[in-house]
């Protein structure tokens, strides 16, 4: 598994674990599918929680910018791209 895919896989696992999603297998989350509402069904509380976990794990800073955040949190891919743009990388378990 390459480095890029490893980060995506790790974020999927983080989403399931941090948000205590029941009946969701990390591998089932599609990298490009919408995370919020129509996709995985996440909501604003999840976004806050997820932001905290990402900041903690990858040392990134997520600003209080609704429009920018809507882009960052659109999908697993956009989250991974954001983490990489801030110098973050997969940390393994």
């Amino acid at each position: 598994m390459g480095g890029a895919e490893a980060l995506e896989a790790e974020i999927k696992r983080l989403i399931v674990e941090a948000l205590a999603l029941e009946d969701v297998n990390p591998q089932e989350i599609e990298t490009d599918a919408a995370l919020f509402v129509e996709g995985l069904g996440l909501d604003s509380i999840d976004a806050l929680e997820l932001a905290m976990v990402l900041e903690e794990r990858y040392g990134v800073t997520i600003e209080d910018d609704p429009e920018g955040n809507a882009r960052i949190f659109a999908s697993v891919r956009s989250l991974a791209d954001f983490v990489r743009s801030q110098g973050g990388e997969a940390r393994g378990t």
């Binding site: 205590a20 029941e22 009946d23 509402v37 069904g41 909501d43 604003s44 509380i45």
Partner: peptide
């Protein structure tokens, strides 16, 4: 949406 049940 934040009020929707999360655990079934």
């Amino acid at each position: 949406r934040v009020l929707l049940p999360r655990v079934w």
